[in-house]
């Protein structure tokens, strides 16, 4: 990885940090994507507006990024669609049961040294790594 790519990754990360900080300092909310999307699906009371606006912002930001950096949306490394569907169900079930994903636990929780978030982050990194290893040993996925 060259210095330029490291700069893009650190810069992208810093933007995510600014986003999470704004939401926390102004609205007192944690920027956990699975929690925000899940809260909308569960029709959690008293929080529909801000969650919907955040998801709207994600979609709008995605559109801007897709116009500016289309190469960043290359999905060719993803597996075949049936496997993507299985992956999606596992991500949906797992993040709901485990109360968070890479953003809520991995960024917001780890940055305040929450024991639960650190443990969850280590757990999903280990099972994610093992999954990639198993897929590699199986000869890759089509």
């Amino acid at each position: 990885m060259d210095m330029g790519s490291i700069g893009w990754a650190l810069g992208g990360g810093a933007l995510i940090g600014v986003s999470a900080s704004l939401l926390l300092l102004f609205n007192g909310r944690v920027a956990g994507i699975s929690g925000i999307v899940g809260g909308l699906l569960a029709r959690q009371r008293g929080g529909t507006a801000w969650r919907a606006l955040f998801v709207g912002g994600l979609l709008a930001g995605g559109a801007i990024a897709y116009v500016a950096l289309p190469a960043r949306f290359d999905a060719s490394a993803a597996p075949s669609l049936p496997l993507v569907a299985i992956a999606g169900v596992l991500v949906g079930v797992g993040t709901r049961i485990g109360s968070g994903c890479t953003s809520g636990h991995g960024v917001c929780g780890v940055s305040r040294l929450s024991l639960r978030s650190v443990a969850a982050t280590l757990t999903f990194m280990v099972t994610g790594g093992l999954t990639v290893l198993v897929v590699r040993m199986a000869g890759g996925v089509g």
Partner: peptide, 22 residues
């Protein structure tokens, strides 16, 4: 839950945020 999420994450290469953005 985190363990299940990790399996899906490693299999598909997406977590919830990037999925929605993509």
């Amino acid at each position: 839950g985190a363990a299940i999420f990790g399996v899906g994450w490693g299999l598909g290469g997406y977590c919830p945020g990037p999925g929605v953005v993509a």
